[in-house]
Simulated scan of single mutants.
Amino acid sequence: MSWLTRVRNAIPFIAKRETPDNLWHKCKSCGQMIFMKEFEDNLSVCPKCDHHERIGPNARFNQILDEGSWRTLAIPRVADDPLKFRDSKRYVDRIKAARATTGETDALMNASGTIQGHRAVVGVQDFAFMGGSMGLGVGAAFLEGVRTAIAERAPYIIFTAAGGARMQEGILSLMQMPKTTVAIAELHDAGLPYIVVMTDPTTGGVTASYAMLGDVQLAEPNALIGFAGQRVIESTIREKLPEGFQRAEYLLDHGMLDMVTHRKALPETLGTLIGYLCEARVNA
């Protein structure tokens, strides 16, 4: 036995320390490594560059609605694959994978509760569920949210995050645009407000329908908002467009938004808006 082997064998064995995979978060904007606890305490906003990361419905409900006040609404059942669509995978397999990953039935969830003491029904689209795409499930959930708001005499607030209509449902997905528009008209007929908060990204058929029909239009900082992508528009009109022309701040400057609100300020802002728009109805 060589001296090197004797020395090595004399060194006490120390088991390798296991580090949890979810201990750190890397900001998608600036690349800063953030301790996960600090990141979550900061509402999933980067403390260095203020980048607002995408979050799912449950995290949003916990941030916006008063603690202990809310309950999720049942999601109406719709046909999972009405067109028997298949590309590189079957559509039903894509839906199953999205449900397994997110734990959600479809890309839009609703909850009923209070914001700063004011009754409200809140809908949240999850971009993690097939890009937040709008299909039969999203249309049915939107209608359910609006009709619950009418029944509870409360405003309906929608947090949009979508890549547009769901291509696997073809014309049926596009039919959700007029369907949601009619639902908003029902809400207005009942004398109740409709408030939109656009988050990153809000694009395509969602932008062309219910995302732009709010009585008040809000957005989170630097959210991407538009219909077609910048390169598609530039190749169509053959002109160079301004940098950041589809970002929330640019749209605010050009009159398409009423305000851009930091995630930390959203509960107070929404509570104030509800108070202005339907104080008597909510507290009746």
Rank of each mutant, 00 (worst) to 15 (best):
L4V: 13
A15K: 10
E18V: 14
K26I: 15
C27T: 07
I34L: 09
E38N: 13
F39D: 02
V45G: 09
K48W: 12
C49E: 12
Q63V: 09
I64C: 07
I64P: 06
W70G: 04
T72L: 12
L73T: 08
L73G: 07
R77V: 12
V78R: 02
D80F: 04
D81A: 08
R86G: 13
R86S: 15
D87L: 07
D87G: 09
R90Y: 11
V92L: 06
T102Y: 01
G103Y: 03
D106F: 05
A111P: 11
G113N: 03
G117A: 06
A120G: 01
V122W: 00
V122P: 01
V124A: 03
F127K: 04
M134Q: 10
V138T: 12
G139D: 06
A141C: 14
I157W: 00
I158T: 02
T160E: 03
G164E: 01
Q168D: 15
I171P: 11
L172W: 04
M175C: 11
M177G: 10
P178L: 08
K179Y: 15
K179C: 10
V182Q: 11
L187T: 06
Y194Q: 06
V197H: 03
D200M: 02
T202M: 06
T207W: 13
S209I: 02
Y210G: 00
A211H: 02
V216S: 03
P221F: 05
Q230L: 12
Q230H: 14
I233N: 07
S235P: 10
T236N: 15
K240T: 15
K240D: 14
G244E: 12
E249N: 09
Y250A: 11
L251M: 05
D258M: 03
M259K: 05
H262A: 07
K264E: 07
A265W: 09
A265V: 09
L266A: 02
L266H: 01
L270P: 00
L270T: 00
I274M: 01
I274G: 00
